[in-house]
Design a protein around this nucleic acid. Structure first.
Lengths: 158, 158
DNA sequence: GCTTGATAGGTTATACTATAACCTATAGCA
DNA sequence: TGCTATAGGTTATAGTATAACCTATCAAGC
């Protein structure tokens, strides 16, 4: 597992880097990285937390970028579809991808106390899932791995 | 991976066996295996498919066992809490557990075409997840592994 | 047997999550 | 310039889940 994130890091540069990656990707693929889409990604990057669509919508509304649910959902759909954002099914929420551009199967560690979400690369698990499932003829198109529990920080406090 | 289920099996006996297991477990643990709870589990066992809470509620309603959402949700909560039913987050739906009574971390194979859900034991994955995550101090309480794709049958048809 | 406390279920209302459908605006291209 | 495809605005509504409060039932102890 790489890139665990329950620790401090240069958040400002991590946001910019992710935004740049998205921008370049869209330019290359002739996709429109519109203000709403950019802002939604930015909002999610500003926190390392999963946010509900309606929380995001509330921020968009305050900023005059849109006020009705479809605005937020459409931007989120776009971002999810192109791998900049993941949906956390367990929380009905969304979180910015920490490894945009890289082919990966994300696994999420979700702290039930502080709600922080960390995205881990788990190549070994991916390989194992892929192998086991291919053996029985099931063809994987997408996988969701979500692990609930207590993060180190919250565990220390308890 | 054991117990894959995209094949035929003795469905009638598998239903009875699961109901008996639940009944015995509840007796042992002094839990009430009430008519509504039993019937909800039975409904889920009758199909090897995930069902939405409102689909289940509709059946309960037809049978005079309850007509409002909380009835279904309460029964489902009970069944999930004690491991007789799993929630499939990805589908906002519920499926009977295929290994009740056994300590396990389920992984679901969900066919996007026929909606069939198969629950697999994947001890190797569980061990690997557990190890990787423990290394960084995260304490696993629960995990969701859901794999979307095409089952062998649907793949053959395509 | 009666009381009491705990648990389950009935019912109403409402919160939260997501999408359909239709219309307007804009950007890129012929 | 005009066409077409894509994005966003807006209204309405579908789908999922729970809060809150009340009643019924059951088991345990008096």
């Amino acid at each position: 597992m790489e890139h665990l994130g329950f620790t401090q890091h240069d958040h400002h540069s991590c946001i910019n880097s992710a935004l740049n990656t998205a921008e370049e990707f869209c330019a290359r693929e002739k996709l429109q990285f519109t203000p709403v889409r950019r802002r939604v990604l930015e909002i999610l990057l500003e926190r390392h937390q999963a946010m509900g669509a309606y929380d995001i919508l509330e921020m968009l509304r305050e900023e005059g970028l849109g006020s009705q649910p479809p605005v937020a959902y459409r931007a989120l759909d776009f971002l999810v579809q192109h791998g900049f954002v993941h949906k956390i099914e367990r929380l009905n929420a969304f979180a910015a991808c920490m490894h945009p551009g890289e082919q990966h199967m994300p696994a999420f560690l979700i702290c039930r106390k502080c709600d922080q979400v960390v995205e881990a690369h788990m190549e070994a698990v991916k390989n194992m899932l892929g192998k086991a499932v291919r053996d029985v003829g099931f063809e994987i198109e997408q996988a969701v791995v979500e692990i609930m529990g207590l993060c180190p920080n919250c565990k220390a406090q308890a």
